[in-house]
Design a binder for these strands. Structure first.
Lengths: 142, 142
DNA sequence: TCAAACTGGTTGCATTTGCAACCAATATCG
DNA sequence: CGATATTGGTTGCAAATGCAACCAGTTTGA
Protein backbone atom coordinates (compact mmCIF):
# COMPACT_ATOMS: atom_id res chain seq x y z
CA UNK A 1 0.00 0.00 0.00
CA UNK A 2 1.24 3.46 -0.86
CA UNK A 3 1.43 6.20 1.70
CA UNK A 4 -1.15 8.91 1.37
CA UNK A 5 0.05 11.89 -0.62
CA UNK A 6 1.93 14.51 1.29
CA UNK A 7 -0.28 17.47 2.10
CA UNK A 8 1.60 20.71 2.64
CA UNK A 9 -1.44 22.04 4.37
CA UNK A 10 -0.93 19.76 7.33
CA UNK A 11 2.78 20.28 7.60
CA UNK A 12 3.49 21.97 10.92
CA UNK A 13 6.47 24.04 9.77
CA UNK A 14 4.32 25.37 6.97
CA UNK A 15 1.42 26.22 9.25
CA UNK A 16 3.77 27.86 11.71
CA UNK A 17 5.26 29.96 8.96
CA UNK A 18 1.87 31.02 7.71
CA UNK A 19 0.71 31.98 11.17
CA UNK A 20 3.95 33.79 11.91
CA UNK A 21 3.68 35.68 8.66
CA UNK A 22 0.06 36.55 9.19
CA UNK A 23 0.49 37.84 12.72
CA UNK A 24 3.80 39.58 12.10
CA UNK A 25 2.66 41.37 9.03
CA UNK A 26 -0.03 43.08 11.01
CA UNK A 27 2.48 44.65 13.34
CA UNK A 28 5.05 45.57 10.74
CA UNK A 29 3.57 48.96 9.85
CA UNK A 30 3.98 50.00 13.46
CA UNK A 31 7.75 49.70 13.65
CA UNK A 32 8.08 50.53 9.97
CA UNK A 33 6.62 53.92 10.88
CA UNK A 34 9.80 54.46 12.88
CA UNK A 35 11.91 53.40 9.94
CA UNK A 36 12.73 50.11 11.56
CA UNK A 37 13.06 46.61 10.24
CA UNK A 38 11.88 43.55 12.13
CA UNK A 39 15.33 42.71 13.37
CA UNK A 40 15.86 46.26 14.55
CA UNK A 41 12.62 46.14 16.45
CA UNK A 42 13.66 42.91 18.10
CA UNK A 43 17.02 44.25 19.14
CA UNK A 44 15.35 47.34 20.50
CA UNK A 45 12.88 45.22 22.41
CA UNK A 46 15.64 43.16 23.97
CA UNK A 47 17.57 46.20 25.04
CA UNK A 48 14.42 47.83 26.30
CA UNK A 49 13.64 44.87 28.44
CA UNK A 50 17.05 43.80 29.67
CA UNK A 51 18.84 47.14 29.79
CA UNK A 52 22.52 47.19 28.93
CA UNK A 53 23.76 44.08 27.21
CA UNK A 54 26.28 42.96 24.66
CA UNK A 55 25.50 41.97 21.09
CA UNK A 56 26.23 38.32 21.70
CA UNK A 57 23.87 38.37 24.63
CA UNK A 58 21.17 39.61 22.30
CA UNK A 59 21.99 36.83 19.88
CA UNK A 60 21.65 34.27 22.62
CA UNK A 61 18.46 35.75 24.02
CA UNK A 62 16.67 36.16 20.74
CA UNK A 63 18.08 33.43 18.54
CA UNK A 64 19.10 35.89 15.87
CA UNK A 65 22.25 35.57 13.75
CA UNK A 66 25.27 37.65 14.76
CA UNK A 67 25.43 39.44 11.49
CA UNK A 68 21.79 40.44 11.60
CA UNK A 69 22.23 41.84 15.08
CA UNK A 70 25.42 43.59 14.08
CA UNK A 71 23.76 45.42 11.24
CA UNK A 72 20.67 46.22 13.26
CA UNK A 73 22.85 47.73 15.96
CA UNK A 74 24.64 49.89 13.42
CA UNK A 75 21.31 51.09 12.09
CA UNK A 76 19.82 51.80 15.51
CA UNK A 77 22.93 53.66 16.50
CA UNK A 78 22.66 55.73 13.35
CA UNK A 79 19.10 56.61 14.30
CA UNK A 80 20.28 57.68 17.72
CA UNK A 81 18.29 54.99 19.48
CA UNK A 82 21.21 53.25 21.15
CA UNK A 83 24.77 53.84 22.22
CA UNK A 84 27.77 51.58 22.33
CA UNK A 85 30.33 51.64 25.09
CA UNK A 86 33.47 49.55 25.46
CA UNK A 87 33.05 46.63 27.82
CA UNK A 88 35.43 47.13 30.74
CA UNK A 89 35.56 43.38 31.29
CA UNK A 90 36.33 42.37 27.73
CA UNK A 91 38.16 44.47 25.20
CA UNK A 92 36.38 42.88 22.26
CA UNK A 93 32.86 43.34 23.45
CA UNK A 94 30.68 46.43 23.46
CA UNK A 95 27.94 47.16 25.90
CA UNK A 96 24.79 48.37 24.17
CA UNK A 97 22.32 50.64 25.84
CA UNK A 98 19.25 52.54 24.66
CA UNK A 99 19.38 56.30 24.57
CA UNK A 100 16.53 58.34 26.02
CA UNK A 101 15.04 58.51 22.56
CA UNK A 102 15.47 54.79 22.25
CA UNK A 103 13.65 54.20 25.48
CA UNK A 104 10.85 56.47 24.40
CA UNK A 105 10.46 54.61 21.13
CA UNK A 106 10.56 51.33 22.98
CA UNK A 107 7.83 52.52 25.31
CA UNK A 108 5.64 53.58 22.41
CA UNK A 109 6.20 50.41 20.39
CA UNK A 110 5.84 48.21 23.45
CA UNK A 111 2.51 49.78 24.13
CA UNK A 112 1.26 49.05 20.65
CA UNK A 113 2.75 45.60 20.69
CA UNK A 114 0.85 44.75 23.81
CA UNK A 115 -2.37 45.86 22.19
CA UNK A 116 -1.64 43.88 19.06
CA UNK A 117 -0.85 40.83 21.15
CA UNK A 118 -4.00 41.23 23.17
CA UNK A 119 -6.07 41.38 20.02
CA UNK A 120 -4.56 38.11 18.87
CA UNK A 121 -5.20 36.48 22.21
CA UNK A 122 -8.76 37.68 22.23
CA UNK A 123 -9.24 36.08 18.87
CA UNK A 124 -7.87 32.83 20.21
CA UNK A 125 -9.89 32.77 23.38
CA UNK A 126 -8.90 29.91 25.61
CA UNK A 127 -6.63 28.47 22.96
CA UNK A 128 -3.98 31.13 23.57
CA UNK A 129 -2.45 29.47 26.61
CA UNK A 130 -2.01 26.02 25.10
CA UNK A 131 -0.74 27.59 21.89
CA UNK A 132 1.94 29.46 23.76
CA UNK A 133 2.97 26.36 25.65
CA UNK A 134 3.24 24.33 22.47
CA UNK A 135 5.28 27.03 20.76
CA UNK A 136 7.68 27.17 23.66
CA UNK A 137 8.12 23.47 23.53
CA UNK A 138 8.95 23.60 19.84
CA UNK A 139 11.37 26.45 20.34
CA UNK A 140 13.13 24.77 23.22
CA UNK A 141 13.28 21.38 21.60
CA UNK A 142 14.94 22.67 18.49
CA UNK B 1 0.34 53.22 37.59
CA UNK B 2 2.61 52.37 34.71
CA UNK B 3 2.04 49.35 32.54
CA UNK B 4 4.42 46.51 33.06
CA UNK B 5 7.33 46.55 30.69
CA UNK B 6 6.79 44.97 27.33
CA UNK B 7 8.29 41.50 27.19
CA UNK B 8 9.18 40.33 23.73
CA UNK B 9 9.25 36.84 25.05
CA UNK B 10 5.51 36.77 25.50
CA UNK B 11 4.70 38.39 22.20
CA UNK B 12 2.83 35.88 20.08
CA UNK B 13 4.17 36.97 16.70
CA UNK B 14 7.66 36.60 18.10
CA UNK B 15 7.00 33.16 19.51
CA UNK B 16 5.40 32.09 16.27
CA UNK B 17 8.40 33.27 14.33
CA UNK B 18 10.79 31.47 16.62
CA UNK B 19 8.86 28.25 16.38
CA UNK B 20 8.53 28.57 12.63
CA UNK B 21 12.23 29.21 12.29
CA UNK B 22 13.16 26.38 14.58
CA UNK B 23 10.97 23.79 12.88
CA UNK B 24 11.66 24.97 9.34
CA UNK B 25 15.37 25.09 9.74
CA UNK B 26 15.40 21.43 10.60
CA UNK B 27 13.85 20.53 7.29
CA UNK B 28 15.81 22.91 5.14
CA UNK B 29 18.78 20.61 4.51
CA UNK B 30 16.41 18.11 2.98
CA UNK B 31 15.22 20.25 0.09
CA UNK B 32 18.53 22.09 -0.01
CA UNK B 33 20.04 18.73 -0.94
CA UNK B 34 18.01 18.98 -4.14
CA UNK B 35 19.25 22.50 -4.73
CA UNK B 36 15.90 23.96 -3.78
CA UNK B 37 14.88 26.99 -1.83
CA UNK B 38 11.94 27.05 0.56
CA UNK B 39 9.68 28.73 -1.95
CA UNK B 40 10.63 26.21 -4.59
CA UNK B 41 9.81 23.38 -2.24
CA UNK B 42 6.44 24.92 -1.50
CA UNK B 43 5.59 25.34 -5.13
CA UNK B 44 6.65 21.78 -5.80
CA UNK B 45 4.53 20.58 -2.91
CA UNK B 46 1.48 22.38 -4.22
CA UNK B 47 1.89 20.99 -7.70
CA UNK B 48 2.54 17.56 -6.30
CA UNK B 49 -0.63 17.63 -4.34
CA UNK B 50 -3.00 19.42 -6.69
CA UNK B 51 -1.63 18.33 -10.04
CA UNK B 52 -1.80 20.81 -12.89
CA UNK B 53 -2.49 24.35 -11.83
CA UNK B 54 -1.70 27.90 -12.78
CA UNK B 55 0.75 30.18 -11.01
CA UNK B 56 -1.98 32.39 -9.62
CA UNK B 57 -3.70 29.35 -8.22
CA UNK B 58 -0.51 28.51 -6.37
CA UNK B 59 -0.36 32.04 -5.04
CA UNK B 60 -3.88 31.76 -3.75
CA UNK B 61 -3.40 28.32 -2.27
CA UNK B 62 -0.14 29.03 -0.51
CA UNK B 63 -0.28 32.73 0.31
CA UNK B 64 2.98 33.39 -1.51
CA UNK B 65 3.72 36.53 -3.52
CA UNK B 66 3.37 36.35 -7.30
CA UNK B 67 6.93 37.28 -7.91
CA UNK B 68 8.27 34.64 -5.57
CA UNK B 69 6.19 32.00 -7.31
CA UNK B 70 7.23 33.28 -10.71
CA UNK B 71 10.90 32.94 -9.93
CA UNK B 72 10.48 29.60 -8.23
CA UNK B 73 8.69 28.30 -11.31
CA UNK B 74 11.50 29.48 -13.56
CA UNK B 75 14.02 27.74 -11.34
CA UNK B 76 12.07 24.50 -11.10
CA UNK B 77 11.60 24.48 -14.85
CA UNK B 78 15.34 24.97 -15.27
CA UNK B 79 15.90 21.94 -13.07
CA UNK B 80 13.53 19.94 -15.18
CA UNK B 81 11.09 19.42 -12.36
CA UNK B 82 8.10 21.07 -13.99
CA UNK B 83 6.74 22.01 -17.37
CA UNK B 84 4.67 24.92 -18.52
CA UNK B 85 1.92 24.65 -21.07
CA UNK B 86 -0.30 27.38 -22.48
CA UNK B 87 -3.71 27.51 -20.89
CA UNK B 88 -6.29 26.79 -23.61
CA UNK B 89 -8.88 28.80 -21.66
CA UNK B 90 -6.79 31.91 -21.12
CA UNK B 91 -4.00 33.12 -23.34
CA UNK B 92 -2.19 34.86 -20.49
CA UNK B 93 -2.06 31.95 -18.11
CA UNK B 94 0.18 28.92 -18.14
CA UNK B 95 -0.68 25.55 -16.75
CA UNK B 96 2.10 24.14 -14.61
CA UNK B 97 2.66 20.45 -14.19
CA UNK B 98 5.38 18.34 -12.60
CA UNK B 99 7.55 16.25 -14.86
CA UNK B 100 8.23 12.63 -13.97
CA UNK B 101 11.41 13.74 -12.29
CA UNK B 102 9.46 16.38 -10.45
CA UNK B 103 6.99 13.84 -9.19
CA UNK B 104 9.81 11.60 -8.06
CA UNK B 105 11.43 14.42 -6.13
CA UNK B 106 8.09 15.33 -4.64
CA UNK B 107 7.57 11.76 -3.53
CA UNK B 108 10.98 11.65 -1.88
CA UNK B 109 10.65 15.01 -0.19
CA UNK B 110 7.08 14.33 0.83
CA UNK B 111 8.21 11.16 2.49
CA UNK B 112 10.85 12.95 4.50
CA UNK B 113 8.53 15.81 5.28
CA UNK B 114 6.03 13.43 6.77
CA UNK B 115 8.68 11.96 8.98
CA UNK B 116 9.86 15.36 10.07
CA UNK B 117 6.30 16.38 10.82
CA UNK B 118 5.67 13.22 12.76
CA UNK B 119 8.74 13.82 14.89
CA UNK B 120 7.44 17.26 15.74
CA UNK B 121 4.02 15.92 16.63
CA UNK B 122 5.54 13.22 18.77
CA UNK B 123 7.39 15.86 20.66
CA UNK B 124 4.18 17.76 21.19
CA UNK B 125 2.12 14.83 22.28
CA UNK B 126 -1.52 15.74 22.78
CA UNK B 127 -0.76 19.40 22.25
CA UNK B 128 -0.37 18.94 18.51
CA UNK B 129 -4.07 19.02 17.70
CA UNK B 130 -4.92 22.19 19.61
CA UNK B 131 -1.78 23.83 18.24
CA UNK B 132 -2.84 23.12 14.71
CA UNK B 133 -6.31 24.43 15.36
CA UNK B 134 -4.99 27.63 16.87
CA UNK B 135 -2.60 28.16 13.97
CA UNK B 136 -5.38 27.75 11.47
CA UNK B 137 -7.46 30.26 13.30
CA UNK B 138 -4.64 32.78 13.21
CA UNK B 139 -4.02 32.16 9.53
CA UNK B 140 -7.66 32.49 8.61
CA UNK B 141 -8.33 35.50 10.77
CA UNK B 142 -5.51 37.50 9.31
C1' DT C 1 -16.56 47.66 -31.82
C1' DC C 2 -13.28 49.95 -29.47
C1' DA C 3 -11.25 52.23 -25.51
C1' DA C 4 -10.62 51.74 -20.60
C1' DA C 5 -10.08 48.78 -16.69
C1' DC C 6 -8.33 44.39 -15.15
C1' DT C 7 -5.68 40.17 -14.69
C1' DG C 8 -1.67 36.57 -15.41
C1' DG C 9 2.91 36.82 -15.29
C1' DT C 10 7.71 38.84 -15.63
C1' DT C 11 11.43 42.19 -14.80
C1' DG C 12 14.30 45.96 -12.40
C1' DC C 13 15.98 47.77 -8.50
C1' DA C 14 16.84 48.60 -3.82
C1' DT C 15 16.87 46.08 0.67
C1' DT C 16 17.49 42.19 3.51
C1' DT C 17 19.50 37.89 4.30
C1' DG C 18 23.08 33.83 4.99
C1' DC C 19 27.44 32.20 4.91
C1' DA C 20 32.11 32.25 5.04
C1' DA C 21 36.19 34.78 5.64
C1' DC C 22 38.12 38.05 8.32
C1' DC C 23 40.24 41.34 12.36
C1' DA C 24 41.26 42.00 17.06
C1' DA C 25 41.21 40.70 21.83
C1' DT C 26 41.22 36.90 25.13
C1' DA C 27 41.85 32.01 26.84
C1' DT C 28 44.38 27.85 26.82
C1' DC C 29 48.15 25.04 27.27
C1' DG C 30 52.71 23.19 26.27
C1' DC D 1 56.02 32.99 28.13
C1' DG D 2 54.70 32.19 23.23
C1' DA D 3 51.97 29.63 19.83
C1' DT D 4 47.29 28.13 19.06
C1' DA D 5 42.58 27.97 19.48
C1' DT D 6 38.29 30.81 20.79
C1' DT D 7 35.30 34.35 20.89
C1' DG D 8 33.10 39.31 19.99
C1' DG D 9 32.09 41.66 16.12
C1' DT D 10 32.34 43.35 11.19
C1' DT D 11 32.61 42.96 6.18
C1' DG D 12 32.12 40.97 1.27
C1' DC D 13 29.56 38.67 -1.74
C1' DA D 14 26.10 35.94 -3.67
C1' DA D 15 21.49 34.84 -3.24
C1' DA D 16 16.48 35.76 -1.86
C1' DT D 17 12.77 39.21 -1.15
C1' DG D 18 9.31 43.14 -1.72
C1' DC D 19 7.52 46.51 -4.35
C1' DA D 20 6.39 49.00 -8.18
C1' DA D 21 6.42 49.30 -13.03
C1' DC D 22 5.69 46.80 -16.87
C1' DC D 23 3.85 43.66 -21.16
C1' DA D 24 0.31 41.03 -23.17
C1' DG D 25 -4.02 39.09 -23.28
C1' DT D 26 -9.16 39.59 -21.59
C1' DT D 27 -13.16 41.54 -19.94
C1' DT D 28 -16.41 45.45 -19.52
C1' DG D 29 -19.45 48.74 -21.10
C1' DA D 30 -20.83 52.86 -23.79
Amino acid sequence: MTDPEFDLDQFLPYLLNQAAEATSRGFQPVYAAYGMTRTQWRVLANLGRFGAMTATAICAASHVEKTKVSRAVTALEGQGLLQRAPDPQDGRAEVLRLTDTGRAVFAALGQEARQHDQALRDRLGGAAGPLEAALRRLIAGA
